[in-house]
Computed example of a mutant assay.
Amino acid sequence: MATTTSDLPDVEPSLGFVVGTNCQALRLEAQLTQDELVARLHMLGLRWKRSNLSALEGGERARPALAELVLLAVAFKRPVGDLLSGTGHVRLATHGPSVRLADLRSFLSGGPTPAELEAQLSTPMGDPANPLPPPAERDMARRLGVPISWIFDAAEQQWGHTLTEERDRRVESMSDTTDENRRTRRASMTKQLEVSVQKLVERRQLGHDYK
């Protein structure tokens, strides 16, 4: 029986939300407990704890790794596309276009690149539809020598949005912030928040999960 994602929100969900929703549906369909599915994953070499699976099914992991999707599909003895069941669009990255789930499933089966991604690549840099990443993320990625997507992923795991958004939210919440001291406080807050992000990035460099 095909898995559905009728519980997906009206807004464009993250890839992790879609995968988590479908993972839970497939698990219940197979009459597996979370512990039983984790045991299957362990046999395949994915050393997840139950908390990792719970986080995925709860939509707390915005962008699961491709290897995790493959191993989950093998554990269910189902095609990878079943973890992407549903209609509508899904957002693959915090800063990027959303794509139709149907097009994404087709792409993973050897079909053409989703039109939304092709259009994004053809948009000139500097165009409002394709803005440059914020300086804080660019500088941190350059300093650590990692893809900028890792910085976005770590911040998403930590706060549910970007480092820049978290910094600005905290600075603006300070009651005595003025135009004169805003820049100084942003710089100071960026350094504080980068500590948490760097810890997660370093875990990823060692091959560990963010949790």
Results as ranks from 00 to 15, higher is better:
residue 152 F to Y: 09
residue 55 A to Q: 12
residue 3 T to M: 07
residue 182 R to L: 11
residue 93 A to K: 14
residue 35 D to S: 03
residue 78 R to M: 05
residue 130 N to I: 07
residue 23 C to I: 01
residue 8 L to G: 01
residue 65 A to M: 04
residue 76 F to P: 06
residue 144 L to Q: 08
residue 18 V to I: 12
residue 204 R to F: 11
residue 150 W to I: 07
residue 54 S to A: 10
residue 176 D to P: 03
residue 118 E to W: 09
residue 94 T to Y: 10
residue 83 L to Y: 06
residue 103 D to W: 01
residue 129 A to F: 03
residue 49 K to V: 13
residue 210 Y to L: 11
residue 204 R to A: 14
residue 143 R to V: 06
residue 28 L to N: 08
residue 100 R to H: 06
residue 175 S to D: 07
residue 62 A to K: 04
residue 93 A to W: 13
residue 145 G to R: 04
residue 176 D to Q: 02
residue 74 V to S: 06
residue 197 V to W: 02
residue 206 L to T: 04
residue 199 K to Y: 05
residue 209 D to Q: 09
residue 210 Y to M: 07
residue 12 E to R: 11
residue 102 A to R: 05
residue 173 S to P: 09
residue 53 L to I: 09
residue 139 D to E: 15
residue 100 R to I: 00
residue 98 S to V: 10
residue 51 S to E: 10
residue 178 T to L: 00
residue 121 L to D: 10
residue 147 P to A: 06
residue 4 T to H: 13
residue 139 D to I: 11
residue 142 R to L: 10
residue 126 G to L: 00
residue 104 L to A: 02
residue 209 D to Y: 08
residue 121 L to K: 07
residue 162 T to I: 14
residue 77 K to A: 14
residue 171 V to L: 04
residue 49 K to L: 14
residue 41 L to R: 00
residue 63 R to M: 00
residue 76 F to R: 05
residue 174 M to E: 14
residue 77 K to N: 14
residue 41 L to G: 03
